[in-house]
Design a protein around this nucleic acid. Structure first.
Lengths: 264, 264
DNA sequence: TTTGCTGGTGATCGACCTGTGAAAATCCTG
DNA sequence: CAGGATTTTCACAGGTCGATCACCAGCAAA
């Protein structure tokens, strides 16, 4: 359901041409990319919370093997792909045995490098369960993906699967206005038919259940002509946004700006 | 730390020279090897309980891609390595995206093939730690992997193997809602066919046996539209939600309610 | 204000989901 | 190879959920 989870990749290489093209591809795929043209201490790699690392061992000098060994040992969850110049079978075997996940030779098509990194990451992830099992807190709410349910205190909201997924999506994009088409696409998984009101209906159901368990908070805000925004606000804030905000230009002329009217 | 756990590998290739050398190496490493010089139905692959599969797509003819797709979909846990003759970048990328874990070109050194299969297998096993020996306690239950059996006090529940594995999995993920597909994948070892009701049937059997030996506890909870959750709860928790509707009708009479429809 | 949309709400009906019993197919053991 | 145990498949019965619809209220522009 969430196949193309964004990948955090670091590239350690100084072949600027190759890296440039690679970066372009990675960016197009929505990956987060870090680059370096010199060895990065494993300690720093840890801090980057990477999913995958692509490196050319030529930059590592004599300590290449040792470095690979250390990285593989210190970051067992990291997808480790080596992209080297000429290499012998013995070298590749040694690397693979050391913990390298894949070893490519240059010249190498960036698309293939991307695909191999994807493959490595895919397999890595598969073993690791729950990538998004992290609970989300919002106002009095706690959204727990491990239970497919939201709670206020220890009382469940009694959400349906669809309801939960909608709420989860909104909460993950907290503060963002999401258009109906976007919401539908991401929750239902396919394009919304013209005139479909499903999203509205489910928003209503969510609001009802939220109102039941957490009456003093407003969570879902309607943006007329656009979509919905999730933002927990204690009641009492009747409204009155429209801050003159002398800075950024208002997006569209006479656009509805943060005018939040809640149900009821 | 990760002693070369014996690997069950199948090789589908008709390059007898290559296969022979490979077999020699594999045998030396203590792997269990199956060979075939023609396409093997995915169904049979399932029965082999493989860890990895090495194949040359030239044997698959036109249906190569389809075959790869089906195998990858049906056996997500299988390490899939392609070893082809000449191949283009586009082909390799397509394969990798389809679910192939690694793609090697012939001529290929057997040692490297072995190393890559190892790497692929290692990658996937990583997440899967097997700590079978640890007994799990839950409510009145004690689940003892060393016996492949669960007990209440000293009375065994008399579980069959599948029943036990299902219960064990659920208990290890106590509190988590597991989707049917996940359950099937992890207990049966391959992807669940659409419309398969096996999980439901086994859940029923488990509930029956649990009810027999431990009537005053509710262990397995159904989440509508999702799957099941294991969470031992002393019976009697009927959790009367305060319904807004002033409803005088007493709930259903004394129905056999060992099915706890908790949160959806 | 009127007019044309957009969004909120309640209700409905069919499709889908789960529990269950039992037959059919398969595996396993002696 | 037979006989029993185990697993898979099938069909049916309720129950739940979600896609739609109709209708009304609120917003925006004229």
């Amino acid at each position: 359901m969430n196949p193309q989870q964004t990948i955090r990749l670091a590239v350690i290489d100084n072949d600027s041409g190759f890296v440039t093209v690679l970066a372009k591809r990675a960016e197009a795929a929505g990956w987060q990319l870090r680059q370096s043209s010199g060895a990065v201490p494993p300690r720093d790699l840890v801090a980057m919370k990477l999913n995958a690392l692509l490196l050319d061992p030529v930059l590592l000098g004599d300590e290449g093997w040792e470095y690979l060994d250390r990285v593989a040992a210190m970051l067992p969850d990291l997808g480790l792909v080596v992209c080297s110049g000429r290499s012998t079978v013995a070298q590749r075997v040694r690397g693979l045995r050391l913990g390298v996940d894949d070893w490519i030779n240059k010249p190498c098509h960036p698309e293939e490098a991307i695909a191999r990194i994807e493959a490595v990451t895919r397999r890595r992830r598969q073993g690791r369960r729950e990538f998004e099992a992290a609970p989300v807190a919002a106002g009095e709410l706690e959204i727990r993906p491990d239970r497919f349910q939201a709670f206020v205190g220890d009382e469940a909201l009694d959400l349906t699967r669809r309801e939960f997924e909608l709420l989860h999506l909104l909460a993950e994009e907290r503060g963002q206005v999401l258009e109906r088409e976007t919401i539908y696409q991401r929750v239902w998984g396919y394009a919304m038919a013209h005139g479909d009101r499903s999203v509205d209906v489910f928003i209503r159901k969510l609001r009802q259940k939220l109102e039941t368990r957490s009456p003093s908070w407003a969570y879902i805000h309607t943006h007329f002509g656009i979509g919905y925004r999730f933002d927990p606000e204690p009641a009492g804030i009747v409204k009155e946004e429209l801050r003159p905000a002398p800075d950024a230009a208002p997006a569209a002329p006479s656009q509805v700006v943060h005018k939040t009217f809640t149900a009821r």
